[in-house]
Amino acid sequence: MPFKKRRKKQTALPEPVEQRPIFQDPQNFSLVVEKYQSLVFRYVYNMVHDYHHAEDLTQEVFSKVYRSLTSYNPKYPFSAWLLRIAHNHAVDYTRQRRLQTISFDAVANKDGVAEGHIAFQAPASVNPDEASQKRFIQEAVYRLPVDHRSVIVLRYLDGVKLEEIAYILGIPMGTVKSRINRARQVLQQALARAYPERRRR
């Protein structure tokens, strides 16, 4: 699905210049890597939750990108195309490593809210201090099934647009919205269980 070209960022590389043959020279391709490495790495890190694995996977993603440069379709933002490749690669990795949690739908109850697969323990402190909240939310997001984790991470990663999330994940916009809602419901319930005192204030 085509969507509007993103506003250009302050950068030396306007899109979609990355597909030009000049970038098939590895030294020139390093400009593409430098520009997008942070985006790809931060997404992959949140999918696998391991710094060193994220580093390896990011390298592999850029290798794939380099080999596929000629297949990039400029009607999509280059960053979204990169994230699509990164997402597919991270999903393959989690499947191989059996890191993926149980399918959301397989454990969803009649209200469509997953149960059982997020076994949170409330932090020792009753008052949700900042450090425990940070740990809690990172852990909670990581424990989401991959298909729900990906929408939440993309939603908060440099403000990726919903249309772009749909393209990156290869799903309709309506599914993106419903996954965001359901993921938030699960996180909300986990939050209420972990911090019951907060809700009563």
């Binding site: 590895p26 790495f41 580093e55 592999e60 850029f62 991470v153």
Partner: peptide, 23 residues
């Protein structure tokens, strides 16, 4: 909580060099 606490670490500084060695 999500906006403030999701962790988005920066990649290692030598990542571009490692990628180029691979490609």
């Amino acid at each position: 909580l999500l906006k403030e606490n999701l962790e988005f670490p920066e990649p290692p500084k030598d990542l571009p060099r490692s990628v180029i060695r691979t490609v």
